[in-house]
């Protein structure tokens, strides 16, 4: 009888532990989202460096303004052939592109989220400014001295079957991610560098490695400015033409 009780207790503890872990995982992820989307708005310059498998570099520059987690305007300034191309992201997956050579804007959409964005190693999905906790369920798989490692599973089937996300234990910003495909092969990995800008933790550089292709892309955030009080009118189609 005693034995049975013991076993029941062990099961109860294990169940509770599992429960606690799951909760903690979700909590940690939510905390990370809060850190990443805490600012009201942002303006900065992005430097995008694409390095192919032979080491050849291709550099692009763009200015970026963002408000909340759903409005963003990206405008390329170099190279010359792409200067002036602007992309506006609005809520509900609405996206516009402006092409100066045509002097026209067009609403664009990509039905395929795993499609690469403008030749970089980031997919449209990767660049989406949507909180992680909305897209993934999280479970804490490991805790180290300075980080949490979460295992994320997509809520809706997509390019990745699971993601291993490492989060800074004290500040809750992401450190690195490993992306796995359906056959559980690691296909991509990314590294984040965060810096404190004012009261926010700001991403200074995100590096994405495409392990299959052997190429990598670095996005560097230069001159980030937070909470400037950008109005919604900055994020309209009219503003695309500048």
């Amino acid at each position: 009888m005693k034995k049975i009780r013991l076993i029941t207790q062990i099961f109860l503890i294990m169940f509770l532990m599992g429960h606690v872990n799951a909760q903690t995982g979700t909590e940690i992820l939510k905390k990370m989202d809060e850190i990443m989307f805490s600012a009201k708005d942002l303006s900065a310059t992005n430097k995008i460096v694409i390095i192919d498998k032979n080491g050849k570099q291709d550099v692009r520059e763009a200015t970026i303004i963002q408000k909340g987690d759903e409005m963003r305007l990206l405008r390329f300034t170099s190279p010359a052939s792409q200067a002036g191309i602007a992309m506006l992201s609005l809520p509900n997956d609405v996206m516009y592109i402006y092409m100066p050579a045509f002097a026209k804007e067009r609403r664009i959409s990509s039905s395929v989220k795993n499609q690469k964005f403008a030749g970089t190693d980031f997919s449209y999905d990767d660049l989406q400014a949507q909180p992680f906790s909305e897209k993934y369920t999280a479970e804490l798989s490991k805790t180290t001295s300075d980080s949490y490692i979460l295992e994320l599973k997509p809520k809706k089937a997509g390019e990745y079957s699971r993601i291993l996300l490492t989060i800074n234990k004290t500040e809750y910003y992401p450190i690195s991610t490993e992306f796995y495909d359906k056959s559980n092969t690691k296909i991509k990995e990314s590294k984040y560098t965060f810096e404190k800008v004012g009261k926010y933790w700001s991403p200074a550089q995100i590096e994405m490695n495409d392990l299959k292709k052997g190429s990598k892309t670095k996005i560097q955030m230069l001159n980030p400015k937070y909470d400037q009080g950008l109005s919604d009118s900055e994020f309209t189609v009219r503003k695309l033409t500048n």
Partner: peptide, 11 residues
Amino acid sequence: GLEVGNLVDIY
């Protein structure tokens, strides 16, 4: 506008 994508969304 336009959409560059796939004929069928695999997901």
